[in-house]
Amino acid sequence: MTDAPLLDPAETARVREGIAASVLGAPEGLAASLERDADGYLRLVDASRVGAEEAGRLLREAVQGARAAGHSWDAVGKVLGVSRQAAQQRFADKGAEPSVPAAGAPGGPERRILGGLSAFNEMAALEEAGREGWHSVGYGPYFHEVEASGQPWEHCRITLPSAARHRRMEAEGWIPVGAGWFPWRYYKRAVRPGD
């Protein structure tokens, strides 16, 4: 891996502009209020705080994703401009080892963990489990929790969908699984006979 930035200057500028536009544009009327209302600047501080918290969360999930994709702490540290040790100390998820989530309700459907997963093999594992009647009910770094059912399921993973795409997928029978895991959103739907 090279020490050169992975994003070119134009890409970096677009990311920065997108974040600034989101912070200014998400709160209703914020940008316009800055021309006439001193309290608008406090709203800007609050919107920037939320943006910074979200950026931090996205960075943590992106690092966990890079690790799940097989990248070393050294490679992650180089991208972040810090040492391997600093990257690991800051971003190592103490709970990243696949742990078994809480079992389903007593007497409820059987659940199991598909472990050792990465961005490169999780969809194949979910496809196989779905054919056998299992569907995802939760996930985290390196695992999906699946639940038994009496029918086959299909799963899909897409990059952060727009609200319109999310509504369209739900209209097509796709059910969101969890709240998303940056940069992915997971969906499932039961396979109808004859599909």
Rank of each mutant, 00 (worst) to 15 (best):
V63S: 00
W174Q: 08
R67F: 02
I19R: 02
G104E: 11
A171L: 02
R185Y: 14
A125V: 01
H166Q: 05
E145F: 01
N121E: 13
T12W: 02
R57Y: 14
P176E: 10
P109N: 10
V146C: 09
R16P: 00
G116M: 09
A32Y: 01
P161H: 04
H155I: 10
P141K: 01
A102L: 04
L34C: 06
Y186N: 04
E145Y: 00
E154A: 15
G138H: 00
A66E: 13
G150V: 12
A96K: 12
S83W: 00
R60L: 11
S22C: 08
Q64S: 14
E132T: 07
H144T: 06
A62S: 14
R67T: 03
Y139R: 01
R167Q: 12
D37M: 06
E54N: 11
P98A: 12
M123H: 06
Q88A: 13
L7W: 09
G173H: 06
R168P: 02
D8G: 14
E53C: 11
V63C: 04
A13K: 09
A190V: 12
I113T: 14
W181A: 09
E110H: 10
G107A: 13
G77F: 01
R57H: 15
P101Y: 08
E11T: 09
W181K: 05
A38S: 11
R167T: 11
G180L: 09
S136T: 13
R49H: 14
A20Q: 05
E147G: 03
Y187L: 06
Y187D: 08
V177I: 15
G81T: 08
E11A: 15
D8R: 06
Q151V: 15
S48V: 05
L24G: 07
G116E: 10
G108A: 15
E17K: 11
E110D: 15
G29D: 12
P152N: 06
H166C: 06
P193E: 11
E147Y: 02
V177G: 01
L160C: 07
E128F: 00
P109L: 03
A102G: 14
G65F: 02
E145V: 06
P183I: 01
D39I: 10
